[in-house]
Amino acid sequence: MNSQTTSAARSSAAPLQPELTKRKLLVLAWLDRLAPVLAALAVIGVWELICRVFALPNYLLPSPSAIVTSAFALDPGIWLTHTWATLRVSLGGYALAIIIAIPLAVLLANSRLMSRTLYPMLVVIQSTPIVGVAPIIVVLMGAGEMPRIFITFLITFFPIVVSTVTGLMSTPEELKELSRSLGASKAREIRNIQLPFAVPYIFSALRISITLAIIGAVVAEFVAAEKGLGFFIAFSTSFLRIPQAFAALIVLVTLSLLLFQVIALVQRWLFPWSLPKESR
């Protein structure tokens, strides 16, 4: 998208100004790089303007300035406590999902019986609206972090299972035959061939799932929590403090984006070959 705009800009600018200097090109390159930031700033500006021009009250749509003000009105320690609580639950549920989903996917991909018996069950779990069963999970698992981690796990693990299975199944049949013709064990085949082949699939699922993990943690915190950004949003709206709730939403979105980037970096760092050639 970005590169397209630039090339369009350049190709239209170049014939008109053959003497286009290096300096101008540099400016254009910077504009290209800053484009997403500028776009975001523009949206915020328009948002602020609308709120002011129409004198929208905070309970309808808080202005960006009202959100920022309410965010800074609170002790940073409070933000840290809630963000940390949500992060812990998200990462806990996410880790649990990875630990369970990947071995499960290996089982499903390598056993027709297992995939025939377990897949329908997994689909049932996935089709169950977690928000609906969350209160039951909380009653069953009691107070503390476990029910929240479990709810996050439930929301997170299915995409990882499905994507990993697809990845494992994408292993070329020839390589499985090669492995068999070498007399190598199934375990070696899974470890040396199937799992590496699934890496790109696993990572695309991991990127989706990390954002789902945040959503899962927030859903769980809506249902039962004494801390966390989900709790904080419920708490703020219960006092009709809408700007404060928006500020928490922004923290959540930022957290989501950051974690998404972290997963992408981990992939680039550990498995550069699993990325398309041009994005390495």
Binding site: P172, E174, L175, L182, I193
Partner: peptide
């Protein structure tokens, strides 16, 4: 030798050639 080369994308060419030994 198969119809498709089916090399392992995460290994370099030399390691692909030695893969059968490493694997076994």
């Amino acid at each position: 030798v198969f119809q498709r080369p089916t090399l392992l994308p995460w290994l370099n060419i030399l390691d692909n050639v030695t893969f059968p030994m490493r694997h076994k």
